[in-house]
Design a protein around this nucleic acid. Structure first.
Lengths: 196, 196
DNA sequence: GGTATTTTGTAACAGTGACTACAAATAAAC
DNA sequence: GTTTATTTGTAGTCACTGTTACAAAATACC
């Protein structure tokens, strides 16, 4: 159920902020935080700067809302993939493959929105993306540690590094088959390190 | 032997362009191409914009000279590491470890200058870095193909992806032990795929 | 010394970045 | 219909960005 807006007084706004967040997410994902200007966003939305700032406060504020929306819709469902009833190595391999699929799914927006966001030149936006990423990495590490405590740190780093590499390569033009093959090769390395 | 300058007429320049390239390399490596402004460079060199543009033509021109200098001094010596008398898997593992060491060597400038350059927002600089990177990847692929032609593409992609990930993680704060452990884990995966 | 040549410092240029002051416009509440 | 609250469009602000015009300064050649 979408939260009904507590009908306000005054002039009604001529655009839907939630839809605007979706549009902004596409822009940020396709070009990266730095390369998207506020003017790009307002042009895409057909609004003027004051409307933008009334709704989102700042460019970084919009980015926060994009990250929030992304978390609820486009993030890899780690809790579904990293299941307790599956061998850890197998679950992590499935996660890498899923990452490959998502990073290549939109040819106009390669890579992971969050991982790419951790590399931008605005401190606020960068730290917001980093915080999200650190949370995901901690989740992965904890999942490994539950059954392989001695290898958790190393394996978690390896998996995170591979995902960063996959995102970078997706951005650099690698298509689904290449990303998938790379993810599978990385995944096969886990079977040896983490015996079922 | 350093090429002696054909002593010119006119006012002498008050700075050494070669030394300037080294300074610029540090700046670009530490902050990335986009985040370094021409004003940053001229301030660091203690010169004014006209001197800068007389010597380098443009910001992208300086970056080209930085890349050239880097190729001759700071690039991983692939030809020395990828030797014909060593098992391919072993040589690639050594390359990954060397990458980890270099990416972590300067805490103020994490990651690979070129790999990070391939992600900047200036098309000219980005393509220059990409060209350099593609050359290195081709070298690696050819090295693998000489003895493992059927696995060359996949393994080359895996290795390149891992290096991109290592560079990203170095930039993100991973220190030498973590990068090295990740590189070794990735390297161990190669031994299985590429039997000696 | 005079002239040609090159680099210097000063001071801009045009363009773009994120962001905002302000008054007209539009709606609900009274 | 008047008031009150809110968003709108216009037109800016200010701090940068990469880059350059121009004249003074400093050297080599004659």
């Amino acid at each position: 159920m979408t939260t009904n807006k507590p009908r306000s007084r005054g002039r009604p706004r001529r655009f839907d902020p939630d839809a605007a967040v979706v549009t902004a997410q596409q822009l940020f994902h396709a070009r990266g935080y730095d390369a998207v200007s506020v003017a790009d966003v307002t042009d895409a939305l057909g609004i003027n700067p004051p409307s933008f700032y009334a709704a989102f406060g700042s460019k970084a504020g919009l980015y926060q809302r994009v990250l929030d929306h992304w978390t609820g819709t486009a993030a890899i469902p780690l809790a579904d993939i990293l299941r307790p009833d599956v061998p850890v190595a197998k679950a992590l391999a499935a996660m890498l493959e899923e990452a490959a699929r998502r990073y290549a799914s939109d040819p106009a927006a390669g890579g992971c929105l969050v991982l790419e966001g951790t590399r931008c030149n605005d401190e606020g936006a960068r730290e917001a993306a980093r915080a999200l990423n650190l949370g995901a990495e901690a989740f992965i590490r904890d999942y490994i540690a539950a059954r392989h405590p001695e290898a958790a740190d190393e394996v978690a780093d390896f998996v995170s590094t591979t995902m960063s590499g996959l995102s970078a390569k997706a951005r650099g033009g690698h298509d689904l088959p290449r990303l998938l093959a790379t993810a599978r090769l990385a995944g096969s390395a886990l079977a040896k390190t983490l015996p079922a």
